[in-house]
Amino acid sequence: MAKIDINVKILRYQPAKDEKPHWQDFAISVEDESTVLDVLNEIHWQHDGTLAYRRSCRSSICGSCAMKVNGRNVLACETPIHRFGTKLKIEPLSGFEILKDLVVDLEPFFAKLKRIRPYLILDKPLPDKEFVQSPQQLEQIGESTLCILCAACSAACPSSWPNSDYLGPAALLKAYRFVFDSRDDGADQRLEIVNDKNGVWRCHTIFNCMEACPKKIKITEYLSRLKVKVVENSL
């Protein structure tokens, strides 16, 4: 481990005093093995206490620290700075209102999740023990349950930016996860919700969401399967 000097450009916005966001430069010295989150902590703890950002688990599972670094959406906690050399440019996720510095308003993002009824809908009686689900049936939804709701996908989606009503990749992936769950009986309800100009059809298969996903979920593929299901279901 060795110290290196880096230049960090951060898009700042303090609602009480700034009319609009502006860039601020920090020249700091950090361990070469640092992550982007380590860099933000260093700035916040040693240089400028007013910097605001979200973080919690440090281990790529809570989804708090999605942000844009050198043009790519990443989780700050799992992203080593050596990936970017000595110049970092850090800004909040696109497509969301900035509350302060790197903190964006995620209320609309979570509200969309609720729209697709993200829970098992059952019209069969509960078994005494577990429902039987084969490993092959589980395989259909396994990868989609990895989603940590970090919003990196939505922030990368050009279809999401101009359409605040568009459900977006994360909520649609959640719809996929329940529609393709062998235990669920609510497919008709959910397919009706996503069969809309602000549902699956607003997805133009651009693949940005997939590239942005820190969990490498094949979102576009699952959304395509959801589209097929919508069509099959309306025939």
């Binding site: 829970y119 098992l120 059952l122 509960l126 577990e130 429902f131 689900q133 084969s134 490993p135 589980l138 939804i141 396994g142 349950t145 329940f178 769950d181 235990r183 669920d184």
Partner: peptide, 8 residues
Amino acid sequence: HMGVPFSR
């Protein structure tokens, strides 16, 4: 029963 995707 809530839908947790347990490994099988």
